Simulated assay, not measured.
Amino acid sequence: MASTLHTDDAVVDARGLARTERGRQKADRRAAILAAAATLFAEHGYAGVTIEDLGAAVGVSGPAVYRHFSGKSAVLAAILEGASRALLDGAERVLGEAPDAASALRSLIRFHVEFALGDADVIAVQDRELERLDRDARHQVRLLQRRYVEHWVDTLSRLRPDRAETELRFRAHAAFGLLNSTPHSARIPGRRPADGTIRGILEEMTWASLMS
């Protein structure tokens, strides 16, 4: 009897491991599709990319993409909502670790610089393709973005209580414009300085634009 129990337990464990491995592989494939889609949408535009293109980019057939997403629009929604959630979660993490308002703002700037340099394709897709989302998906992305902006405005208001909230919000949006556009211009062949230099320049310019 004990032997049978041990055998049954081993079968259950093996099945559990198999399910876990399949789940991991599915998650990895989904992430690969999103990464490839961001690059393709940035390079060719949403309209210029097909489901077959997405599949080919990750080594599967076009129809295989439907195992992970209901269609191309769902891929776009996942890219933009995922980026907005990552920004919001990151902002809340760095704010929770900052000892004071000045440190909080510097951490927010540093965090966004890393995002802008690491996810320039996503930023390009956000700028050009947001309006292609359906109403509900677009609303969700904009809601996440507004919450992200408010963290910046709240932090700025602690440092500049003498300034109106409307001005601080304008400064935050202007800072995003600087941070989100510069990585693309820096990618032009022959014009990109070293990554460390780019980071330093962006952080210094953003701090100055917010605190001047």
Rank of each mutant, 00 (worst) to 15 (best):
A35G: 02
A35C: 02
A36M: 01
A36C: 05
A37E: 01
A37K: 01
A37F: 01
A38E: 06
A38Y: 01
A38W: 00
T39F: 03
L40E: 06
L40R: 09
L40P: 04
L40T: 06
F41Y: 08
A42I: 00
A42V: 02
E43Q: 14
E43R: 14
H44S: 13
G45Q: 04
Y46Q: 08
A47W: 09
V49G: 05
V49Y: 00
T50K: 00
D53M: 12
D53W: 01
L54C: 04
L54Q: 03
G55T: 02
A56M: 12
A56L: 14
A56I: 12
A56P: 11
V58D: 11
V58L: 05
S61Y: 09
S61T: 12
G62N: 08
G62W: 05
P63S: 07
A64N: 11
A64L: 11
Y66E: 06
R67Q: 14
R67K: 13
H68S: 14
F69I: 04
F69W: 00
S70T: 14
S70R: 12
S70L: 08
S70F: 01
G71R: 00
G71I: 09
K72Q: 06
K72G: 07
K72E: 07
A74G: 12
V75W: 01
V75Q: 11
L76N: 04
L76G: 10
A77Q: 08
I79M: 06
I79G: 03
L80H: 13
L80I: 08
G82K: 03
A83Q: 15
A83C: 13
A83G: 15
A83E: 15
R85A: 15
A86I: 02
A86T: 13
L87G: 08
L87S: 10
L88C: 09
D89E: 15
